[in-house]
Amino acid sequence: MKFESQLLKGIAPVVVLEILSRGPMYGYELSQAIERRSAEILTLGKGTLYPLLYNLEAKKLIKGKWETTDSGRKRRYYSITGTGEAELAGRKAQLVELAKGVDLLLGGALKAAF
């Protein structure tokens, strides 16, 4: 089951920040990482990926840097900033609380799933 809906839009910044908190990545690599690490449950629309990255960069949650690879290709690597890490921590705490609430509503269904 893949989520490309409004539901994903709300957590897309958290997802990107979480992935980037593990190390700098360029756009394509990031989209692959999201799918791979979410067991292909979450997928970020390609059309929203780059605007999202630019928005996070505008908010100074991530920063981009051009680098040239050994093969001579130019790539823009994004890495999380200190502000981004703080934001990620806050968002994650909110999500945990949200999950708790949803779990209670669903009668422990979420816990059972994990």
């Binding site: 059309g47 780059y50 605007p51 999202l52 990255l53 630019y54 928005n55 505008a58």
Partner: peptide
């Protein structure tokens, strides 16, 4: 649409 989203985001930068 993609161009519009990119433009808006870039302007914020």
């Amino acid at each position: 649409l993609l161009a519009a989203l990119c433009r808006r985001a870039k302007k914020r930068c």
